[in-house]
Simulated assay, not measured.
Amino acid sequence: MNEHTTDVPPVEVHCHGFGDVDFSDFRKVDLARLDDWCASEAVQALPTMYLRRDKLSEFEEFVRRYDAMRKDGLLPHIPGIALEGPLLASHGGTPAQTVWAPTRGEWSRLAALGELGLKYTVMSPDAFRQGSTLHDAPEAREAGFDWILPELLAHGVRPALGHFTRQDPRAGAELAAEMVEIAWQSEFGGSGARVVTDHLFNDMPLTIRHAFRSTAARRERDRVIASYDLPGWSLDALDTIVGPVPATIMREAARGRVAACINFDGEHVDLAIATRAVQLMGIPHSMMMTDRCDSARLGGQDLHRTEDNGLWYQNAGIVAAGSQPLARQMANALGQGLTEPEVRMLAGGTAHRAFGLTTTAPQLVPAGRR
């Protein structure tokens, strides 16, 4: 552990909506109200948004407004914002209209927002390959990652690896490793980690069952988890244990070249698997993410729940978001035997280092943990 373990507020790294506000609806996001909400929960937040191509100008205006308020000291609990997409090889629970391949000009416009507070954008290493929803997009080959990543990183915008296809896991892993290498060879206009991730194990090819979301699945859970021999997992054997994509991400995180996000709600990923993963990657290289949405509306799509869990689903039955706040996830991690300093690192310390956040409210602790 290091100085980032303590005395920094927890950070909701990847969240989609607090209260009745869908962050992706830029017209309705009251930033002052959002900051007050974060203060009431004693967290900082990086609101994560979906972006339609025809809303790019509107998003730029929103980010400029955010930057002006931030500079005026009005948003101490919102140290940055983030995008999920648009360059995604697989939709997952993402609205289809928010998945698109930007042109060079559009990438430059997105990159410029790094100067105003855009911290990362989720993108798929295999977005340009066969099997990707964007493979045949007219703009897909206008710019490759050898141009896109340096353009983003020069302004401090990090790529967040995620939304892989399942067609060729080995190729996806190799492309992820190539992206990390490009990032580390590029000039960086920010500080902290140059590469982060969407949530580990979700929306990527796996060789294990990573979650047990139904009543029937939970009846098999203990037997399946025991068969995985989690204590016996090692970084060098992960390709055959979990699959080459998560294995590559975990090894790059263990090397300190990636800050990896993982969900501790017990529904996106089984808690025992999540715990073993952060132990292997190293707690200082791992971040909790909630993927949280509080209402049944996200990115313009209606959501619903089932009786089996607290996740939000879109109409096609695909998981779209979680619902548990950070304080609940911290309690879940403590219940897995992680120590208080480790949990504080997962919930805040790593994020502060990875995103170069300023500590504006060091006295904050999550609600219910004072």
Score class of each variant (00 low, 15 high):
234 S>N: 12
234 S>A: 12
234 S>I: 08
234 S>R: 15
234 S>Q: 13
234 S>D: 12
235 L>R: 12
235 L>C: 11
235 L>D: 10
236 D>K: 08
237 A>W: 00
237 A>M: 05
237 A>P: 00
238 L>Q: 03
238 L>R: 06
238 L>I: 03
239 D>T: 08
239 D>W: 06
241 I>M: 03
242 V>Y: 04
244 P>K: 00
246 P>R: 04
246 P>M: 04
247 A>I: 01
248 T>R: 03
248 T>K: 02
249 I>C: 01
250 M>T: 05
250 M>W: 02
251 R>W: 03
251 R>D: 00
252 E>W: 06
252 E>Q: 15
252 E>L: 08
254 A>R: 12
254 A>I: 07
254 A>L: 01
254 A>T: 06
255 R>I: 12
256 G>M: 15
256 G>Y: 15
256 G>R: 15
257 R>T: 13
258 V>S: 11
258 V>I: 15
259 A>F: 14
259 A>H: 15
261 C>V: 07
261 C>T: 13
261 C>Y: 04
261 C>R: 13
261 C>F: 09
262 I>E: 09
263 N>V: 13
263 N>C: 14
264 F>T: 14
265 D>T: 13
266 G>Y: 03
266 G>C: 03
267 E>D: 15
267 E>K: 14
267 E>Q: 15
269 V>R: 07
269 V>N: 05
269 V>E: 05
269 V>C: 03
270 D>R: 08
272 A>H: 07
272 A>W: 00
273 I>G: 01
274 A>E: 07
274 A>C: 06
275 T>Q: 04
276 R>P: 05
276 R>C: 05
278 V>R: 03
279 Q>D: 01
280 L>G: 02
280 L>S: 07
281 M>W: 09
285 H>D: 05
285 H>Q: 12
286 S>E: 01
287 M>A: 13
287 M>H: 13
287 M>K: 15
287 M>D: 10
288 M>T: 14
289 M>F: 06
289 M>G: 10
289 M>P: 00
289 M>H: 06
289 M>L: 11
289 M>N: 10
290 T>P: 03
290 T>K: 10
